[in-house]
Simulated scan of single mutants.
Amino acid sequence: MLPLKLGDGQTAFIDYFMDAARKSDEIDIAVGYVSKAALKQLQSLVDETGIKRVCLTIGMYYHEGMPEGTYNVAAALNEYWIERGIGEVRLVRAFKYHGKAYVFYKGGKPFSAMVGSHNLGAIKLEASNLRQYELSAVTEEPDELEEVSVHIRDIMLPKCSANISELQDVPLIREVNRALVDQEFVVKVTPEEVDAYKKRMTEVSFELPLKVPEDENDLSMRGSNINVCYASGRKRVWWEIEMVVSKTIRDLPGYPLHQKPFMAITDDGWKFQAWTCGQNNKNLYSKDDLKIMGRWIKGRLVAAGLVEPVNRVEGDQNGNGVITHKMLNKYGRDTITLTKTDIVTKTEDGTELEVWMLSFLPESRYHQEAEDEMS
């Protein structure tokens, strides 16, 4: 990285790591932080090289909080490795671990190790770390290799860490739903404003189930509701959805009137107009653009690292972009809560609109359940 270029005998970390990994049949890694892209890169590398055993131990998140997208990608990688019987992902819980150590094995013996400042994100360069200078040292000396190997194996022990699937109390940091950033007809709302709206919520509230297939093998409802983009007929973009609400809910007192717009405030800080429409008032839509509601719901799942947007739905033969109940379970919620407030707002042209809250963050439901139990 200019002006501090590599000198004689020096190698870029990413090049050395890739070369050593391809010569290995086992890898142990202990780092402070990881990235979603690096986790996916590591999975691809392990698959490509046929590595027989791998353990990734992550040191800082249990105490500092873990970005939800990173957590879900790490949990999925752990599940994948365990199913294949080759490894696991662990989190250090005894203390904050900020080390960065890598050991490569062949035939049961370590042949190379790296120790320095490189977190796992260094194996997949992105905009966030492209101009970040790091320094690590390599050793191939037997005594030093043994010392680093023993150190990482100690970090892997239950006295220091646990498998990520065993830890139910990892604090998650909710990530911004970037699918709604700079979208027309959508306004960002501050957390303070959201809290102010929440304090004005009434008892008129409806829990709307998200109707989706059970998993990737379930073909029912694959082309309906929030997966309507996969239906045959008119081509739709991945973000477009249909929220179909059952008659038992629509007939409850206070449900929004047919085609009467209202202002929706989401629990993660977005504002847009919505309404109920369609035959027998069965649909709940974002008013000005059908993709807005989809960008809010699916965008939350994208931010959580559970699915990637699909550019061409007709080319997604494996249904990688289909939202499933299995996916919603990992996210922590399979319903949308629609709650009326006692606030009436006005649009620029003076039209009065009722204000309703839309909730889809997992903790929103838990908080509401706790409040219901207390009341």
Score class of each variant (00 low, 15 high):
340 K>C: 04
48 E>H: 08
359 S>Q: 10
23 K>D: 09
275 W>A: 08
162 A>I: 05
134 E>V: 01
3 P>I: 01
220 S>H: 13
161 S>D: 01
17 F>L: 06
261 P>K: 08
108 G>V: 00
317 Q>A: 09
281 N>W: 03
324 T>D: 00
79 E>C: 04
214 E>V: 13
22 R>Y: 08
368 Q>K: 14
306 L>W: 05
232 S>C: 03
66 M>W: 14
355 V>M: 02
362 P>R: 04
113 A>T: 11
102 Y>S: 03
322 V>C: 10
288 D>N: 15
268 D>H: 08
317 Q>D: 02
194 V>F: 01
54 V>L: 07
233 G>D: 04
182 D>K: 14
121 G>Q: 14
320 N>T: 06
360 F>K: 03
340 K>S: 10
280 N>V: 14
352 E>W: 08
187 V>R: 13
345 T>E: 07
65 G>N: 03
80 Y>V: 11
135 L>K: 04
248 T>E: 15
147 E>H: 14
141 E>Y: 05
328 L>E: 13
371 E>C: 06
179 A>N: 06
250 R>W: 07
163 N>D: 09
156 M>H: 10
218 D>Y: 06
239 W>Y: 12
164 I>L: 11
207 E>G: 00
134 E>M: 13
289 D>S: 15
128 S>G: 08
322 V>Y: 02
312 R>I: 09
86 I>V: 12
10 Q>S: 11
96 K>F: 07
294 G>K: 05
217 N>M: 13
46 V>T: 13
176 V>W: 02
360 F>E: 09
268 D>A: 00
324 T>W: 06
116 G>F: 02
242 E>Q: 15
255 Y>F: 15
309 P>I: 05
258 H>W: 02
81 W>S: 07
287 K>G: 09
214 E>Q: 07
211 K>T: 09
46 V>M: 03
43 Q>V: 11
96 K>L: 04
220 S>P: 02
310 V>G: 05
308 E>H: 05
139 T>L: 05
352 E>S: 11
116 G>H: 03
329 N>Q: 15
278 G>M: 07
183 Q>W: 13
281 N>C: 08
239 W>H: 13
350 G>V: 10
25 D>Q: 05
265 I>P: 07
262 F>C: 03
357 M>G: 02
220 S>K: 14
325 H>P: 09
205 S>W: 03
1 M>F: 15
230 Y>E: 07
335 T>K: 09
338 L>N: 08
342 D>V: 10
293 M>G: 11
158 P>L: 12
273 Q>D: 10
350 G>Q: 05
299 G>W: 01
70 T>A: 07
253 P>T: 04
358 L>P: 00
245 V>T: 02
55 C>K: 12
7 G>M: 01
160 C>H: 15
247 K>W: 06
168 Q>F: 14
